[in-house]
Structures are given as structure tokens and as C-alpha cells.
Design a protein around this nucleic acid. Structure first.
Length: 422
RNA sequence: GGAGGGAUGGCCGAGCGGACGAAGGCGGCGGCCUGGAGAGCCGUUAUCCCCUUAACUGGGGAUCGUGGGUUCAAAUCCCACUCCCUCCGCCA
């Protein structure tokens, strides 16, 4: 959530251009501005009236203690009450409306973010690794997995529907191997492990920016009013909600493995084959709470942490700086890391690493107290480190043999006990 | 699921209709004292919103788990909900 000062002066201009750059219409902002005017007026009216009432009450109490007659004053006070009643209701209504629309406004991109419309305007900032070459036509991972019987796509469909799969045997083992491998990396880089709830309440969903705008993307359990987490970023964001941290405590590095549940409501018919886009997948998420002045440095560091994992697995990748039009709602700056997948003949996004500045900490109310006594909202960062499916795709497709086998990357062998999946 | 107890400022803890944004203590901050530190003493010590201002300048409003209600007036009374603790039941 943005600072309300964005509704005035220079900052308003900044907000406008940022909305345009992100491909948002200005209609909603005009609506907000209109509501805000009414809101301020009502606040003033109500507060003034309350001041008057408080004054009367004070006089009444003084007169009562002196034993004087207060009937007339009582009547006046009751009249003020009547006026307040409907004004207050109006005020409550307009404040709710205001908060709702304001929570729909995305973050302001950092000045280093390229302005652009869509992914074609993203900027590749570096590439690593050698693209594998084959003497045969490399197959897509779904064909390989089916033949090796390590992922059962049909069974997933029968149990839960499309975009669900069943990992079997070495497939399941490889999945756990990756998860544990990622966990060990996170630990090595100084992140502290968290196991959060996989279901969270509405407030927590709001804090990280999923609600109210992306309600349709979430699985919701009506009976208990709980949402299934779409990423560990959601519970991690709220770990310090309504807390004020000490300056010396920062930065705080956390990581968590969770399954991630997404309805993929806008993706009908897209990426239906294989495990590229599923309703449930596994991910190890990296998360940082930092001082505002350090967040961009920490952002670069987080990207390097994730790169190191891919390098150790010898996966060719490129780091892409997203343009304004392609960035997520909460983000001020995002790098995607895309891994090369031979069977697809191209790159797939495997990690998204964002600095959201104080966008989430405002929603969750997470502050830091400076030595000077001044309080600021902390900055938060999140990054996949990593999600398993697309890394798995890359490993399977890049390491396939002519016979349809898959050579397991050296660092993962110790978890499984085999070098090659036959 | 059933029965009972509880939720107050950074923390502990009083208050149970009016002068209470809230006693007292601890902690924090500033000062005195000291060669320095400690002890001691004095002072200070929340957040948010609106209007105003060069300014946290001045004025006002709100906040004692959350949301309602009673009252001229609620931390205090009533109702609902949430969370925590204890006991019983059920269960991996």
C-alpha cells in the first residue's frame, strides 16, 4: 500500500506516470481523488462535532458535581448525538470505499526499472552457462517423464483435475532432492528456516498484496474462511505484522518451503502440457526484512544467491530485469531468472526476485525504530529460491540422452543414490 | 465440541461510569552529580487521522483484543466475535 502523501503535489504526478507506465488506466485514480475529497470533508465535520460534544460533556460533569440543573445541556447533547449518528455512518462508508480503491493501486517502480509495455521490453542483464547441443531432437519433459514413469499426468487429472500431477518413484525423490538442495543453499547463505501455516486468513493475504485485487487466483476454504497460500511469501510477510523491530535486528533473512496453490484463473488452455504451470507446486522462498537504505543492495545479493544455486546444478540461465509493464502489483523492482530448457527450445521463468520496498510493510504495519527514535516502515524482499517444477523441466530436458534416460546432476545424486534415471 | 479464566502503553501491573491517554514499577531517553562509571536525584517517555504551519508550529478527533450497544459521558456496564490459558471430550 502506498503512502497517502501520493495523493498530493509532486508525488501525485509521480503516481500518475507510474500508473501509465504500468499500463493502468487513470480512471481509478480520479475516482480515488474524488472519494478522498469527500472523505476529508466528512472527517472534519465529524471531528468538529465530536469536539463540541466533548465540551458539553465536560461542562455537564462539572455542573453535576456542583449540584446544578443540567436538563437543557442534556437536551443539546442529545441533539448533537443525533446529528453525529448519520454523519458517522457516512464517514465509515466512505472510508471503507476509499481504503478499498486505494489498496488496488500498485507500487511505484524504482527509477532503475526500464519503462515498457510488456515482456518484450524487459532487459537481459546477464547470461550464464552453455546451451546444450544434441545429436538428436530433444524431447519435451512430459514425454520423457511419462516414459520413465516418474510423473503421472493422467493420475493427477483423475485425482484432482487438470494441472495436477502425481510424482512417482525417482520423480518424487528428485522433487524432494531439489527441495532439500534449495533449503541447504538458503541456510548456507544465512537465511533462517521457517515452516509457516499453509493456510492463512484474509488479513495475511491482504498484507502481501494478494487481496483484494487477486482474489480469483486463490483457493479459499469457505467454512473456515482460510486461503491456501499461493507462495510462502504470503505468511512470511506477516511474520512481524504490527511489530516494530530494532534497527540492529535488521536485516532479517528467512526462508520457507511450502507447497504453492494457485487457481491460474486467467490461464485457461495455456501451458497445459507438462508441469510448467500447475495448481500445486513446491517452492523454497527467500525473504528479507531490511532497512530502507539497504534494500537495493540486498536485492542484488538475493539475485546472486539464486544464481549460485543454478550454477551449481549447471543450468544455463539468464537474468532479466522486468520493465514497468511486466512487473507484479506489489513490486518496485523485479529480476526474473529464466532457465534454459532444451525440450522447449527456450527459456522458462524459474525465479522472480522482487524488492517491494515498503509496499507490504505498510499493509502489514511492520516498522523499524531507529537509534534516533524515528520510526520507518521496513523494506521487504522476496525471491523464489527456487520453485521446483521449472528447474526440474530444465534438468530433465537438458540432461536427456538419446535412449530417453536422464542424467542426474552430480550434486543431487547423494539424495537419490542413482546417477541416471532409466 | 463442552465448562471456566483472561486480554490495559516497549514490558510488568493498577484502575471497574465523569477531571483517565490512563497510578506505580521496570526499561528507554535527556540532564545533574562523577576523573569516568555505578548508585542517587530531576525531567521526559504511544500511535494514527483531520485542519493549520516553514516546522512532529498550533488546534481538534480517535485508540485500554475486535466490532456493536446503553449513557450527556465507557478502560470501566451490556451483547457478539477473535485470540490466549486451564479442565473435560475427540483425534494424527
Amino acid at each position: 500500500m502506498l503512502d497517502l502523501s501520493y495523493l498530493k503535489g509532486e508525488k501525485l504526478e509521480k503516481l500518475k506516470s507510474s500508473l501509465i507506465n504500468r499500463g493502468y488506466s487513470l480512471d481509478i485514480l480520479e475516482k480515488i481523488l474524488d472519494i478522498d475529497g469527500k472523505r476529508r470533508k466528512l472527517i472534519k465535520e465529524v471531528d468538529d462535532l465530536r469536539a463540541k460534544k466533548n465540551e458539553k460533556s465536560k461542562i455537564i460533569s462539572q455542573m453535576i458535581s456542583k449540584g446544578e440543573n443540567v436538563d437543557d445541556l442534556l437536551k443539546e447533547a442529545r441533539e448533537i448525538d443525533n446529528m453525529l449518528e448519520h454523519l458517522e455512518e457516512e464517514r465509515r462508508k466512505i472510508e471503507n470505499e476509499f481504503n478499498y480503491y486505494w489498496s488496488l493501486i500498485p507500487n511505484i517502480p524504482h527509477q532503475s526499472v526500464p519503462i515498457g509495455k510488456d515482456s518484450s521490453d524487459n532487459v537481459v542483464v546477464r547470461e550464464w552457462g552453455r546451451i546444450p547441443e544434441f545429436e538428436f531432437e530433444p524431447k519435451p519433459h512430459w514425454e520423457i517423464c511419462e516414459k520413465l514413469d516418474i510423473i503421472d499426468f493422467n493420475m493427477g487429472g483423475e485425482l484432482a483435475g487438470s494441472r495436477f500431477v502425481v510424482y512417482k518413484g525417482i520423480g518424487a525423490e528428485l522433487e524432494w532432492a531439489l527441495i532439500n538442495y534449495f533449503r541447504e543453499f538458503a541456510k548456507k547463505h544465512g537465511y533462517k528456516e521457517i515452516i509457516p501455516p499453509f493456510l492463512v486468513n484474509e488479513r495475511v493475504m491482504f498484507n502481501s498484496g494478494q487481496l483484494p485485487k487477486f482474489k480469483d487466483e486463490m483457493y479459499y476454504i469457505e467454512k473456515d474462511e482460510l486461503y491456501l497460500v499461493p507462495t510462502a511469501e504470503v505468511p512470511l510477510t506477516s511474520l512481524f505484522m504490527n511489530k516494530t523491530l530494532d534497527e540492529e535486528e535488521l536485516p532479517i533473512y528467512y526462508f520457507a518451503y511450502t507447497p504453492c496453490f494457485r487457481r491460474e484463473a486467467g490461464a485457461y488452455g495455456k501451458d497445459v502440457r507438462g508441469i510448467k504451470r500447475m495448481h500445486q507446486f513446491n517452492k523454497v522462498e527467500l525473504y528479507k526484512f531490511t532497512l530502507p537504505e539497504n534494500s537495493y543492495e540486498e536485492h542484488e545479493k538475493m539475485v546472486r544467491d539464486v544464481e549460485e544455486i543454478l550454477q551449481s546444478l549447471n543450468i544455463p540461465y539468464r537474468v532479466v530485469l522486468l520493465c514497468t509493464g511486466d512487473m507484479g502489483f506489489a513490486s518496485a523492482k523485479t529480476y526474473d531468472i529464466e532457465v534454459y530448457c532444451a525440450g522447449q527450445g527456450g527459456y522458462l521463468e524459474a525465479s522472480s526476485i522482487s524488492n517491494v520496498e515498503d509496499f507490504q510493510s505498510r499493509r502489514a504495519n511492520i516498522k523499524v525504530k531507529r537509534k534516533s527514535g524515528k520510526k520507518d516502515f521496513v523494506h521487504t524482499l522476496n525471491g523464489s529460491g527456487l520453485a521446483t517444477p521449472r528447474v526440474l523441466i530444465s534438468i530433465i530436458e537438458n540432461n536427456q540422452t538419446k535412449e530417453g534416460y536422464v542424467v542426474i546432476p552430480e550434486p543431487l545424486r547423494k539424495y537419490i543414490g542413482v546417477d541416471i534415471i532409466k
